[in-house]
Structures are given as C-alpha cells and as structure tokens.
C-alpha cells in the first residue's frame, strides 16, 4: 500500500498519445520547442516529448529505437542514418548559422578576417584559447570540418590553447567565458544565452557557417515500437505552412533565431 501509492501516480504509460523526439540542446536551449510544440499538440492531440542531447548521442539513441523522430543538424550523419535504414527519409526543416564568439577586445583580431578559413587560421596562429565542444555533436562536427578547410589540426594543441570541454553548448560557452576563450556556437543558443558576460560575436556571415537542421522519422520496419503515424503527423506539420510559419515567427530579444526552409 505504502509502496504502490507513490508509484500509482507516475505516468507509466501515457493515456494521451505522445512521441519522443531525439534532438539537440541548441534547439531546446533557444526556447524554440517551448514556443512551437504546444501549437502542434493543440491541433493534433499528440504530445511531443523532447530529449535534448548532442547530435551524436541523439543519433545513437534513435538507432537504439529510443525515439520516434530525429531532429538534428549534421547532414552527413543524417544521410548515413537514412542510408543505413535506421531512418525513413530526411527533410530540411530550417537553418540558422554558426557564429564565433570571443572576448570583447578580440585579441586574435577575428573581426578583421574576411572568411571563416582565415578566421580559424588566425585562431591557430595566435594560439589564443579556444573552447571546443569535443563531444561529437553537430556543432563539433561542423567545427572540425571548418578547421580542416583552414588546414589546421587543432587537436595537436589539445590541452594547450585548444580546449575540448566534452560538454554541451551551454556548458562550453560557460567555460569559454570563464577562461576568456573563443568558441563556436549556433546563433540561436548565443542569443538566448544568459551568461554572456563580456563576450560578443567576433565573426559571422560566411556561408560556410550555414547550419541546416533536418528531420527524420525513425524507421518502423527496424524499430517496431515506433509510433509511425504520430511521427509522420509531426514531421508533416513541421514541414507544412503552419509549422514553418511558427518557426519563422519565433523571436528572442526581437531577433529571429531560425529560418524555415522546407522544400515545397
């Protein structure tokens, strides 16, 4: 009796239908989901439960069938996920962009550089502290490709000026601010970030910093427990005018954070 009382009130299995979306911290921390998901739930009656982890972990969880929908930002990994048969098909949902943030006095003079390869080269040359996610997330994967384009292998300096935090975006930003280091972050997380201290955006605007989000339904043939109908309903809504409109309408401090770009 004593034992069952507290357990009884736990939602062991939901009475109302729900889906689990494996997604990234950047989308959750920016507040996007809090803004748009209630709109979907209101029209569909389907509750959306978001597990926000790094892109790498989100994909692994989805591979374990622990989610119905995958919404992340690492196109190559997403395509591999579909090619392997783990996901059904991939659709572009929206994009934002990455920016480089750093101390206000910008010691590596990134604001003087004209493209992102130059900016990364300047970071390496000046050996100024840089805080990397180092966690196989979408942001981390993007960062590594940018280093490669700049012909720099920063991991040689790991532990010196190149600091791999192994943490989420927010934690990495907290660390960068704590040790006066540069960091690469998606713009949405940065705008919504509450602990900017003296840091500011020091480089932005290069097309190479484009950050595309894609959505994939987990393959029900591989994962029989997947709620395929509800998952499809959610993806269809995201890609519909209503969903795209909601994404475009979400603002923080008067700035639009995500730009819908689903294929019509």
């Amino acid at each position: 009796m004593v034992l069952t009382a507290p357990l009884a009130t736990l939602p062991l299995s939901a009475a109302e239908p729900f889906i689990i979306v494996q997604s990234t911290t950047s989308t959750q921390n920016s507040g996007l989901y809090d803004a748009i998901l209630p709109l979907f739930t209101a029209t569909s009656g389907i509750d959306v439960r978001v597990v926000a982890v790094g892109t790498g972990q989100a994909i692994k969880n989805a591979r374990n069938c622990d989610g119905d929908v995958l919404l992340v930002h690492a196109r190559a990994s997403e395509q591999a996920f579909v090619a392997d048969g783990a996901g059904v098909s991939r659709s572009d949902v929206m994009y934002n962009d990455f920016v480089l943030v750093g101390p206000a006095d910008d010691p590596a003079r990134l604001s003087d550089t004209t493209n992102v390869a130059e900016a990364f080269a300047a970071l390496a040359q000046g050996e100024t502290p840089f805080a990397s996610r180092g966690d196989d997330s979408g942001t981390h994967k993007k960062e590594m490709s940018l280093w490669q384009n700049a012909h720099v292998d920063p991991t040689d300096a790991s532990g010196a000026w190149y600091r791999e935090t192994g943490s989420g975006m927010g934690a990495t930003l907290n660390i960068a601010i704590g040790m006066n280091a540069y960091a690469m972050t998606d713009r949405a997380t940065w705008i919504a970030f509450g602990n900017k201290s003296g840091h500011k955006i020091v480089f932005e605007g290069d097309e190479a910093l484009f950050n595309q989000y894609g959505v994939i339904a987990v393959n029900p043939e591989r994962c029989p427990a997947v709620k395929a109908t509800e998952a499809k309903a959610f993806i269809d809504w995201l890609l519909s005018d209503a969903g795209q409109g909601a994404i475009g309408a979400y603002q923080r401090d008067g700035q639009q954070l995500f730009f819908p770009n689903a294929q019509k």
């Binding site: 921390n29 989420g168 927010g170 934690a171 930003l173 907290n174 970030f193 509450g194 602990n195």
Partner: peptide
Amino acid sequence: LETSKGELAL
C-alpha cells in the same frame, strides 16, 4: 538545463 542556458542565477 538552466546552467547550460547560461541562466546561472536561476
């Protein structure tokens, strides 16, 4: 979560 959002006071 709030820490990762930089909302340290919260």
